[in-house]
Amino acid sequence: MAQITFVTKNKEEKVLEGTSGSLMKLATQNGVKGIEGECGGVCSCATCHVHVPEEHQAKTGEASEIENDLLELSDNVQDNSRLCCQLQITEDLDGLVVHVAN
């Protein structure tokens, strides 16, 4: 079980709990605003873009080249951008906070 906090563009905080699957799925199943996951998690659409605060980056690790290439052309891209369909929920992510980018 991991507790994950999504902070949306309008500063709303949603604290969710998950055991498996991707962060994107957790967010869409719980109606987190700004996370759409249109392509279902195959790294095609970039509608699950989040920013990961520095203190949490050790938990999420590095983006792959395919993910980075897509992020590069996304709105509101920053050094700490990730596509949350590429983040799999494990206990290691417990306490993670992400900010929705759009």
């Binding site: 195959v42 790294c43 095609s44 659409c45």
Partner: peptide
């Protein structure tokens, strides 16, 4: 196929509205 960064619905500003 897990990673599939296809552009079949276009890409960017004008990506497919009907997708």
């Amino acid at each position: 196929r897990k990673m599939n960064p296809h552009v079949a619905f276009g890409f960017g500003t004008h990506n497919c509205l009907g997708a």
